[in-house]
Design a protein around this nucleic acid. Structure first.
Lengths: 128, 128
DNA sequence: TTCCCTGCAAACTGTTTGCATCGCT
DNA sequence: AGCGATGCAAACAGTTTGCAGGGAA
């Protein structure tokens, strides 16, 4: 992990992710950043998202639809993925922590409490 | 959902999935089925896996690495995905059902208890 | 005979990489 | 000046699709 050199593009990407509670895909990040950096490329977006995730400055959530989601909220919280509209929501359920404990002891592996993912229909899709 | 016509390829795919507790990717299925059907194509494998999943004869688990896994065990059970070796394990933790309940009430959406996915390091990778 | 299913190849999507150039430090 | 970061385009991997021919009903 060598020192990163400052870049306006990377800062813009991080700022954007810190300003939203949605969980953008690389593509959404690209679409948004393009407003300020019309010539930015997908390569740069992907490279910077990976770099920031490596540095622990954001969480990279691999999702059920294949596309990763990015989250600047790095506190321990579970996620929900809607199998219909593919949105990703935070799921702040304290019980998850306890469950992670239980699972870990019977399981003998290490369970990462930040990466518990529930699937189903989000409130909006359920209502519709 | 129209009636399916019998095909030896599809039966072989289902038989294979019922005979294993690993959670093969489409590619693993292809590799295995090829022993009996050397000319089978990936298109056929993907088509049949989707058909079987549609019929509810197997579970299609979208995974963190992008590749889906397939599971002929359609009883309610959570899964674990190893972020190092990418293996998928069954996680039979009764508490997950309770958690799904809790989550559902505070959440107002529908949580699918068969699709709760934990992430972390599997026992083998943890030991290594 | 009908029409679903197959094998094949081409198309697609999301992501990564090689390279010349740019711009922090 | 040195070297990491950028934009661009080509390469990639996993999956889907169109089509002509084959096989179950």
């Amino acid at each position: 992990m060598t020192a990163l050199k400052y870049s306006r593009q990377r800062e813009a990407i991080k700022d954007y992710l810190m300003s939203t509670t949605t969980h953008p895909t690389a593509d959404s990040v690209y679409a948004h950043i393009r407003k300020d950096f019309p010539r930015i490329s997908m390569g740069t977006v992907y490279r910077n998202l990976s770099l920031l995730a490596e540095q622990g400055e954001l969480q990279q959530l691999p999702c059920a639809d294949g596309g990763d989601r990015f989250d600047a909220n790095i506190t321990a919280h579970a996620h929900f993925f809607c199998s219909k509209c593919q949105c990703v929501l935070d799921l702040d359920i304290p019980e998850v922590q306890g469950l992670t404990q239980i699972a870990t002891t019977t399981f003998n592996g290490r369970i990462d409490s930040q990466q518990v993912v529930f699937h189903g229909l989000c409130p909006d899709c359920l209502r519709a």
